[in-house]
Computed example of a mutant assay.
Amino acid sequence: MGMADDYFLLVCDDVPHDVVLTDPGIRVLDVAQVVRRLTGLSLWRSKVLATQVPALILDGVHRADAGAAATNLRAAGALAQVRAQPEPDFLKP
């Protein structure tokens, strides 16, 4: 059996997490500025993203980074959630 026939599973301490904006609140421009800092998008695109909820702001980041991002969004007046990404199908029994 060659190396190409072997499958390896890397076990990580931290599964990828997503940051989801569920409500921009009343301070949409403040939230859009936070989205801009987190994503690198233009302010206009950040505002559009912030108003189309639920919006995936960050995809597949470490839990600590996701928590910090959600805290920043909440500080700006938004409602945001940190969600663990689902386990891939090939890992399910």
Rank of each mutant, 00 (worst) to 15 (best):
D89K: 05
A64C: 00
I57F: 01
V61T: 11
V53Y: 07
T51E: 15
L73Y: 00
V82M: 04
D5P: 05
G40E: 03
I57Y: 01
M1H: 04
V53C: 15
A64P: 02
A66T: 12
V11C: 07
V53I: 09
D5E: 14
A80D: 14
P54F: 02
A68K: 01
S42N: 00
A4S: 15
G67D: 15
H17R: 03
V61I: 15
L21V: 13
Q81A: 11
G2Y: 00
Q85T: 08
L41V: 02
R27F: 08
H62P: 09
A84M: 04
L58F: 05
G40H: 02
S42M: 00
L10P: 03
T51Y: 01
N72L: 09
R83Q: 14
T22Q: 03
P86H: 08
L41N: 06
Q85H: 01
Q52V: 07
C12S: 09
A78K: 06
C12G: 03
P16M: 05
A64L: 02
A69H: 01
D59T: 04
T39F: 07
V28G: 03
Q85R: 08
R45A: 13
V11P: 03
F8R: 08
T22K: 08
A84T: 02
T71A: 15
L58S: 09
V48E: 15
A69N: 01
V35A: 01
A64M: 02
G25M: 00
V31G: 01
A66G: 12
H62G: 07
A64H: 03
L38K: 10
S46Q: 04
V61D: 06
E87G: 08
Q85K: 13
A32E: 04
L73H: 00
V82P: 13
L41S: 06
M1T: 12
V48L: 13
L10F: 13
D18V: 11
V48W: 07
